[in-house]
């Protein structure tokens, strides 16, 4: 797959609970997978309808657990965790899919989010009334600058995702344009339109079922 898996690092870290007595030390294997996905197309623009740029209207489904795109035909399964269509992001749960997935938008940096906060609520999709990952400019993960016609992921927003199988992942969207570079504010609308709807994001997937990243 050309657009993904630029870096794939497998962390196998061993957390040792330091023993202060002769008791047997419990050992927890912490399986954290971190990846960056480049320029994942998400219903890219195919033409104009009534002058408005439109895509084919289809989601791009993605498995965080297996770091790959899942075919559209396989969308009614637990094989995918997250899907993208324009600025809309759905998770495999609620009325979006058969999985146990959900999520929410966390405010803070990716690196500082070392565990899903204990007091947080995992939301599920109830499309079109509400989304686990809130849609709309300045409400969820992105801001739309209508003066310059640009969509920019808001810095300090991390998508906390509960996967189809109930595991946890954190996702930071880095860019919304092809090649991971936002066009200049002065670029033509034609460039801004044809380059948009390409997600570059990094994520960490915790395979052991804990909320720790």
């Amino acid at each position: 797959m050309r657009n993904s898996t630029a870096t794939s690092i497998l962390f196998l870290s061993v957390i040792l609970f330091a023993a202060c007595s002769k008791n047997e030390t419990p050992v927890i294997l912490n399986t954290l997978t971190s990846n960056t996905v480049n320029s994942l197309p998400a219903d890219t623009i195919i033409g104009l309808v009534n002058g408005q740029p439109v895509g084919a209207g289809k989601f791009t489904f993605f498995s965080l657990a297996n770091n790959k795109i899942i075919a559209n035909s396989d969308s009614n399964s637990v094989n995918w965790d997250i899907a993208f269509r324009g600025t809309t992001i759905i998770t495999n749960g609620g009325n979006s899919g058969p999985g146990a997935g959900g999520g929410f938008v966390y405010t803070g940096t990716f690196d500082a989010l070392t565990a899903v906060p204990a007091d947080s609520t995992i939301k599920v999709d109830n499309v079109p009334t509400s989304y686990a990952i809130t849609t709309g400019s300045n409400k969820g993960w992105y801001v739309y600058d209508f003066v310059n016609n640009l969509i920019t992921p808001i810095p300090g927003r991390v998508l906390v995702i509960k996967t189809a199988s109930g595991k946890y992942a954190k996702v930071e969207i880095l860019n919304y344009y092809k090649g991971g570079i936002t066009p200049a504010a002065t670029a033509t609308d034609a460039i801004k339109t044809s380059f948009q709807r390409y997600y570059t994001f990094r994520y960490s997937y915790q395979g052991n079922g804990t909320k720790v990243f």
Partner: peptide, 8 residues
């Protein structure tokens, strides 16, 4: 600007 990574 280059990595796209957010920081405080």
């Amino acid at each position: 600007l280059h990595t796209g990574i957010a920081s405080v």
